[in-house]
Design a protein around this nucleic acid. Structure first.
Lengths: 336, 336
DNA sequence: CTGAAAGCGCTAACAG
DNA sequence: CTGTTAGCGCTTTCAG
């Protein structure tokens, strides 16, 4: 009762194993009568070719390794969905790994990808350090950065323009009459979610001739969980804020929760804008105004891009930007 | 510049390939001097053994296939985390597949798992139909059901006792003085999230001598997204509900949103209990009372269990129940 | 058009 | 202790 191999099929169909192989890979080179016999045998035995043996020969496994820093963050859910759909289309399978932001774990997974002969790697969100980059080079494997990028190194990437997105959000607030705008963001050492979005916040202020106040800003270690604390600290620093822009919807939801506890009305007293447009943001109280990232598309496009590099197809744009969008819901309002 | 193979290492270290193989698999059977030479060569070439070739021989790939019906649902995030951690411990890799509740996709993934020679399969949430079961048998592969189970078939499973959990939630409401308790649940065709939880709702009512009113119940197609509509329909059927229990936190959050829009106070006018204790439930307004499933543990335990079956270890309990817990936060209150 | 044979990268007897 | 050899399941020349 062991799994049938190509040999079993050949025996049952009374042909050689090469003929069986041919009906699977080049059916027209086999005479119809034999073809049918083989097909019947395959069906009867429920034979499925062994992908390991095939991979050994083709030097291709149709597998993509995906690294996610924190799979619990809803942000990744739609990205993975997009990756999934694209993978399906190109015949890839995804090996998804969660690093928990642990460098050790990351490297261990990269090693694993190498051993398993994945065809390419998708790296999400985390900034690329120099030794990280060295490791990637060593793998001699196609890589695409997702929701992050690298300025120093020539690595292909797919993401939105975070600086512009943050600028848009803050500019909208300013245009709505707000002058005292808080920023709950991530540490500047994070080059994307941290630094770039911060720069957008700054640029919008500069352009409007507004001062940048340290007391309006609160930075968290990336992915830390204490959104409530951050909100508290921010309003301790400056209780007179009329609007707050946060670097993620999860942060915004924590903020909403904090403000509600304090009896501060949103948007009457304070306007809130989030970032990401996660699923839940439509159901917060009040409904969250936010920057929508095309997450599904980011995931989908990143697989397309990786596929292009795996196949050596043309892929003219190294760093791709997908469009973002400001979704205005009920957590913001104009003031006179 | 092609990837180094065992042969390259052997050549560089001036030994035979079997010696190289030995230092990797049974180091003590190799004389130290040669051992060192081999290790040096491995380091110099950055050699990594090809997992495909190994898998072909061992008939083991250290890979587990995971099927998720909807990865966007936050519910799965922690389960995956648990699976990840356990996998890491046992040296497995996870291939995560999202079926979008599509039978076609499911079968296609199962096929894929077979071709890739995964060592075992983890199936989450979906009920087991008879032809589904037939397909699983055909695969002759260890399977563990996660967050679901099968009464008809002898399939190992890990989950909470959903009937009891739902009973606990409703009993708590009754004990808090509520008499008119709504239920937004999933279709009864779903044997776990639908039927079992419904039965818990019923049992709590029966036991308290309360009538079961059709107008207090609203059933959705599993995983449908219209939590707002369901909430609306329920309150149209019976506006005098003082409490509502929902089959998931996502449903509860939609309900909270609906009630807020209608100006109905939670918990003053209506108490709400969710199910799952997803991350966001701590930040809703008001904070959500809910049934906590030990999701991380469910994920972790399911890998342990699958591992036991893969290795032919003892695993006395076929259907395992992990403890749930009622987390009382601020969305419920007692009435006189 | 089809079978025999070599070989993908590795492990596991089997002699020495 | 170590090298030679066969073989995991499959594809692919190469003759016929």
């Amino acid at each position: 009762m062991t799994k049938p191999t190509i040999r079993d099929v050949a025996r049952l169909a009374n042909v050689s194993i090469s003929t069986v192989s041919r009906v699977m890979n080049a059916p027209d080179t086999v005479i119809p009568s034999k073809q049918e016999r083989v097909l019947d045998a395959i069906n009867e035995l429920k034979y499925k070719p062994n992908a390991l043996a095939r991979g050994l020969i083709y030097k291709k496994t149709n597998t993509i390794g995906v690294v996610i820093p924190d799979i619990r963050n809803s942000y990744y859910a739609d990205i993975i969905r997009g990756m999934e759909d694209a993978s399906k289309r190109f015949g890839y399978n995804l090996i998804i790994c969660n690093t928990d932001h642990d460098r050790q774990r990351l490297y261990s997974y990269l090693n694993n990808f190498e051993e398993r002969q994945v065809d390419g790697i998708l790296l999400t969100s985390e900034p690329i350090s120099s030794d990280y980059h060295k490791e990637l080079k060593r793998l001699r494997m196609p890589v695409v950065l997702v929701s992050t990028h690298s300025i120093e190194y020539e690595l292909p990437s797919v993401r939105i323009n975070d600086e512009q997105a943050a600028y848009d959000a803050v500019a909208y607030l300013i245009q709505s009459g707000h002058r005292s705008i808080g920023w709950i963001g991530f540490d500047l050492s994070d080059s994307i979610a941290g630094l770039t979005r911060y720069q957008g916040y700054i640029r919008a202020h500069r352009q409007a001739g507004l001062p940048i106040l340290q007391e309006n800003i609160r930075l968290l270690r990336l992915w830390s969980d204490d959104s409530l604390d951050a909100a508290h600290a921010l309003f301790l620093q400056n209780p007179s804020l009329t609007a707050v822009f946060t670097a993620s919807d999860e942060l915004a939801i924590g903020l909403l929760c904090y403000l509600n506890e304090r009896g501060i009305q949103v948007p009457e007293q304070v306007s809130v804008i989030g970032f990401d447009n996660i699923r839940m943001s439509r159901f917060t109280i009040p409904k969250l105004t936010t920057i929508a990232q095309p997450m599904y598309e980011i995931g989908y496009r990143s697989v397309e891009k990786l596929h292009a590099r795996i196949e050596g197809l043309e892929d003219p744009v190294l760093r791709e930007y997908l469009p973002h969008e400001l979704i205005v819901r009920s957590s913001t309002r104009s003031i006179e």
